[in-house]
Each structure stands twice: as structure tokens, then as C-alpha cells.
Design a protein around this nucleic acid. Structure first.
Length: 304
DNA sequence: GTCCAGGTCGCGC
DNA sequence: GCGCGACATGGA
């Protein structure tokens, strides 16, 4: 059976750009489908069936407005709960409810390479759940991107739920799924290095107190308070906390890592060793939008 | 074989 | 509060 769902919205949204610039779609259970200008994802629905959804933009030639289209192939019929789950998770992944208008105002004032971003750029992909995004961020620390992809792949293969028509493709594991094994067994099945204990402990906390993490999505909590709460979690330092904040839809902090340091050193001709505070201050004028400013500063930069 | 990665922790000062 | 070595693993 096939189901197609259209998600309408009115804001400028550059779907294609989102897919191209953000590596998140390369991590399982996402797949980037460049030929279709789409991504797919394996997901378990409330009814229990595990399906593949293909998400694309039906109006890609008519920027800036996108018409998000979700196609699902499934073995049994979908009920109302499944459909609303699909819609809400896609809206979350694409951040359709985020308002980047204040950022675009700053971009227009800035001019130059910034002046065209308001055609719907800046909606960085995220996972349906905070758990998945937090695990993935931990798996980007002190490792190359190829290593991140491998570790996420192992996690999905070992602990995900299989797709109904292709058991080799699986969902991202729930915290409960990881808890079915002891830490010892977990470490043997997936090779996360010293990060295994961090991921396992995070899963345990999510399984025990999911509401504690859901509370982090509250937009009324000051970003600084969120950072403090995130830093209290083992395995999450300044870089990871700032990255997770972005995935929560808050762009006030810049994740300072080797990529950031290398970029600002080259573009702004900073001398080694990099003064971290001075580097971050380059984006001070962007206020609550520092992360997106840094992101586009990097992706629009062409080294001479 | 050797080095080290989109960092973080825990220690000693 | 700040500097520094250790940390698991596999790709480069």
C-alpha cells in the first residue's frame, strides 16, 4: 500500500538547500537521495509497522515556497494516529514551525552574500527525537565524519527495528532498545570507543526520565540555562552543547571545534594560537543567530 | 606501522 | 578556574 501526504506551509523554505548543506541526512536511518532531491528515512509508526518515508519538495522549481511531500510504502493500512505522527515528525525534522524572519532581517542589513538567504535557507535538518540527535552529536566528537557515519550505522544495525520489506534497513534505536543489553554487551556489539558509556548512560536517563529531556524544548528557557543542563550530561562539553542547542532550534552559541577554528583562522587571518573568545566575538553582532551566521559564513566562503 | 579525528573528562596545581 | 594527559576505535 502507498500513502502520500502533502504538508502545506506559507513561509519561504529552500528544501533542496537544506539537504545539500547539512550532513545530517547522511546518517542512518536517513538516506540522502540526490537524484530525487529528496531524503528517505526508516521509521516505526505508532501502529508498530516499520516503514520507509520519502520526503521531497513537490514545488522545487517555484522557490522560495516548498510543498513538502511525504510518500510512504506500508504493508498494512495507516490509521489517523500514524498519519498525524508522520506529519508531526516531518514538521519537526524540517523545522517548519521555526521562524527565521528575525535572522533574515539581519541578513538583509548585512548585504553581500547574506542578502539572498531569505529565500528560505537556514532550516537545518534534525532527527524526529532529541535522543537521536544527542547520540549523534556525541558520536561526532573526537572522530572524523567517516567514523561518525560508521558508529551510527552500527547502532542502527544492531538495535534498530527492521523495515517490513527489507530487514537490512532499520530504525534508529529507542533508549529502551539499548537498555535490553548490559553495557558490556553493548560495547561488544557497537564499536563506539570510549563514547559507548556516554551513549549508554544517556539512553538510560532517557528511558528513565523522558520528560526531563522533553522540557529542554521549552523556548522560554534561556539558552544559557540549557547549556548548563546539557553540560551536566557526561560526554557533552561546550561543542556538543552548542550543537544540541542548534538542534533544539536555538542558535545563540557556536560549537567551537577544529572546523570552526580552521575556518575563522583562514578567513579572518587569525594568528595561532586562536583566541577562542576573539573568534566567537566575530559573530557577536548576530545576537541569537550566531550559529546560523557562522554556518553560512562558512558555506558561502570561497578560499582564494 | 603510526597518527589522530567536527572533544571531553578528571586530575593536579 | 586553567593546563594537560588519557581515552577507544578505525580510517587516513
Amino acid at each position: 500500500m502507498r500513502t502520500q501526504i502533502a504538508i502545506n506551509h506559507t513561509k519561504p523554505y529552500d528544501f533542496s538547500h537544506m539537504l545539500r548543506v547539512h550532513g545530517w541526512a547522511a546518517l542512518h536511518p536517513f538516506s540522502y537521495l540526490p537524484d530525487l532531491d529528496a531524503f528517505s528515512r526508516i521509521e516505526q509508526l505508532p501502529c508498530g509497522q516499520v516503514v520507509e518515508m520519502v520526503v521531497s519538495d513537490a514545488a522545487r522549481s517555484r522557490l522560495p515556497h516548498a510543498e513538502i511531500q511525504v510518500q510512504v510504502a506500508h504493508p498494512a493500512r495507516l490509521d489517523r494516529t500514524d498519519r498525524s505522527y508522520l506529519i508531526s515528525s516531518v514538521r519537526h525534522m524540517l523545522r517548519l514551525d521555526e521562524d527565521l524572519a528575525p535572522f533574515y532581517v539581519l541578513c538583509r542589513e548585512k548585504g553581500g552574500v547574506w542578502k539572498n538567504l531569505d529565500a528560505g535557507q537556514g532550516f537545518l535538518l534534525r532527527s524526529p527525537t532529541l535522543f537521536e540527535d544527542m547520540v549523534k552529536v556525541i558520536l561526532t566528537t573526537n572522530i572524523q565524519w567517516s567514523g561518525t557515519k560508521r558508529m551510527v550505522r552500527e547502532l542502527v544495525q544492531q538495535y534498530g527495528e527492521p523495515l517490513w520489506r527489507d530487514a537490512a534497513r532499520k530504525t534508529f534505536p529507542t533508549p529502551a532498545a539499548l537498555m535490553r543489553d548490559t553495557l558490556d554487551v553493548f560495547q561488544r556489539k557497537v564499536h563506539l570507543g570510549y563514547r559507548a558509556a556516554y551513549v549508554y548512560q544517556l539512553a538510560a536517563e532517557f528511558a528513565e526520565k523522558p520528560e526531563k529531556f522533553l522540557a529542554l524544548a521549552d523556548p522560554s528557557i534561556p539558552a544559557g540555562d540549557l547549556i548548563k543542563q546539557l553540560l551536566a550530561i557526561k560526554g557533552i562539553g561546550n561543542y556538543a552543547a552548542a550543537s544540541i542547542l542548534m538542534l533544539l532550534g536555538r542558535y545563540e552559541y557556536i560549537p567551537v571545534d577544529t572546523v570552526f577554528r580552521d575556518f575563522v583562522r583562514q578567513k579572518y587571518q587569525l594568528e595561532l594560537p586562536i583566541n577562542q573568545q576573539a573568534a566567537v566575538n566575530l559573530y557577536q553582532e548576530w545576537g541569537h543567530w550566531k550559529y546560523l551566521a557562522y554556518w553560512f559564513d562558512m558555506y558561502t566562503w570561497e578560499p582564494s
